[in-house]
Design a protein around this nucleic acid. Sequence first.
DNA 1: CATGAATGAGATTTCATTCAT
DNA 2: CATGAATGAAATCTCATTCAT
Lengths: 213, 213, 213, 213
Amino acid sequence: MCPAKAVKPTRKQREQQRHRKEILDVAMKLFVTKGYENTTMAEIADEAEFAVGTLYKFFKNKESLFAELVLQTWRECTSALQIGLEGTGTEVERVERYIEIMTGIMVKHSVAARVYASFVVRAMVPWNEDLQARTDEMDKRTLNLLESVFRSGIKKGMFAKLDPKALALALDGICDGFLRATMNQSEAYTADQIAQTIKQIFLDPVRVKSSRK
Amino acid sequence: MCPAKAVKPTRKQREQQRHRKEILDVAMKLFVTKGYENTTMAEIADEAEFAVGTLYKFFKNKESLFAELVLQTWRECTSALQIGLEGTGTEVERVERYIEIMTGIMVKHSVAARVYASFVVRAMVPWNEDLQARTDEMDKRTLNLLESVFRSGIKKGMFAKLDPKALALALDGICDGFLRATMNQSEAYTADQIAQTIKQIFLDPVRVKSSRK
Amino acid sequence: MCPAKAVKPTRKQREQQRHRKEILDVAMKLFVTKGYENTTMAEIADEAEFAVGTLYKFFKNKESLFAELVLQTWRECTSALQIGLEGTGTEVERVERYIEIMTGIMVKHSVAARVYASFVVRAMVPWNEDLQARTDEMDKRTLNLLESVFRSGIKKGMFAKLDPKALALALDGICDGFLRATMNQSEAYTADQIAQTIKQIFLDPVRVKSSRK
Amino acid sequence: MCPAKAVKPTRKQREQQRHRKEILDVAMKLFVTKGYENTTMAEIADEAEFAVGTLYKFFKNKESLFAELVLQTWRECTSALQIGLEGTGTEVERVERYIEIMTGIMVKHSVAARVYASFVVRAMVPWNEDLQARTDEMDKRTLNLLESVFRSGIKKGMFAKLDPKALALALDGICDGFLRATMNQSEAYTADQIAQTIKQIFLDPVRVKSSRK
DNA sequence: CATGAATGAGATTTCATTCAT
DNA sequence: CATGAATGAAATCTCATTCAT
């Protein structure tokens, strides 16, 4: 009858969602610039122009606010990468796409990239085991996907006969390395420039020459 | 001039140095397992079997205790890498040595590696600008050295004609990537295994084939 | 005069009263199980299926909601006891009736009993002086009534010649003691069993033997 | 050699103990006058002339500070009563002693009495199960002792043939009743007066007449 | 130098109450 | 009247740092 009704998020509910997002955005900004432990709930509330209590209506506590942030970012990045890897095209093209998406994420969404990176660090001191497990799981799936693309590429003679898992790790590491390098230097590179460089360094030599289209 | 002075490390002064080292060791262990913010001065004092006050005799405050730790670790690693790069042998051998030293540091001194890594993360959230600047400086010098090895290797036709700076970043990134991958996985690799893999992935394709000795 | 007015409890007004009672019932349950300070207005609202704001339409604040509850319970108990004491029968019978009503209240309305008891405790920490004064006043009247029954019973030679006020206090104390004892023990006694025991312990010895009917 | 040494609480340690006691005393006073939930750690610290942090050096948290207080008081009272019951003399004398000690506790140490009483109330809303269990255990032992004194007194024909457990509960109840009555009234009774009254009301009638000395 | 009790600023979290819809 | 999101004061607890012994 009234199909709109099924989807009808009340005006109030829509406001809620906006507020929730506002808080998350502010928190992201602060966590990224000042770090988790040096950001207080009061600051987040202030900046978001809410009262402290309001934050606690949306998130059980500081930790789960952070977890939400990390998971959200992680999910976005992971899913973009996986879509790229699972898409159409030859294995070489898919790996190229992976590189492009990765650098795109890092340069365009440099804030998210910092959270991503900052969480990589945090990952060294397992801090919230549940969160850790969930991001690890996502990472593993992406890496497995990348590995399987390499494996099938190797079978088809497109890549050198190397361990596909090692190739996946190496590519991931290179991307991270470039991320850090570009982030810490004032000289700003565009995503494309970085992607090109990675492709040259990593892909060209690894690719069996005859595989060029 | 005053030989007595040069030898003077009194028993007391030697003890001092031992105590200082004991504190640093305990702090390292705790920072690495629990993270900086979750380690209290009281814990460090307890574990090191000193009173809290004593810690403050040796270090101005918690931050400078941490800074000391990072700088020390960093200096060790950096100097090992630089010595490797500046040593004898062809450019290819020197890069191989770099890879070996890097993986050695990471696997053998996994504790130091974690501090290293954990600080890389921390680096994303510039937290102590002075410390940041000093480690960045060291890193830059190492990277420049690596870059110049690549450059001269390229000139000699040992490496493919790629941007030497990009090569340096890529190698650094790969090493880091493998570090993280091996640290987070229960399957323990030996330093040698990792070094071999990195050489295969990175060095073999990049190296101009005829350059093999 | 204005019969319409007397009957007027509009449907709306009747609903109001129902709602008010629903809130009080829920509040009673929660205060009794979790204690006053550990029960939040939000919980009461939730359980009663109203909004928080609605609670404040009915009660000025949390404290007065509690006060209403206590006063209501107290009035019920007090009036039952007073009716028992003022009713027909010999003094001995009236005291017996007091004991029966008291144990009845305690066992049958164990919830109310707990509020009663819990407030007795609270009474030790005068917390709301007004409420305190009002319950004290009711207690005093009941105790006075009990005292006067003892006094006239003593005059008629039905009770031993003891201070009637002390007898009243003693009886009250015994009832309370049994209440606590039975409430805290898993062995459930019926109201009758407890009443019988109290009569035996307290009444039999105190009663002049020839006064038995 | 130096037996004093074994007992030697350093000056510092003695100071510690004094401080601990000071805090407990202040806390007792405040909990008793304002109630547990309405007393803040800051108030206790202020009144005791320490910083808040210091309280936490002595007690894990507010709850355990309270628990310590209750247990201490409870132990004192319980042990006094048990000593009284287990001492020399006929059963009648021992019960009399119980009454005297009880009233003594209540009147002389009215503060402790209030904690005692206030905790009885709290007991209705089991709040800290461990603490509850421990005080219940102590109470049970005392009551059992009282019961056994009654039982042996009954055997010797000193008391009427009533259920000894019920007698114990009744006596306990009467004492409590008088406590409350005297505490809430401005007319101050001496411990002796109250003890006399209780003996008259409870003991005289219950005691078999020929048992009088 | 070494000690460790004391400090108190500051962080997180809760919850009674209000008020715009 | 009913609602419930928003508020913010206040409470608990932590911990880097100091200082008298």
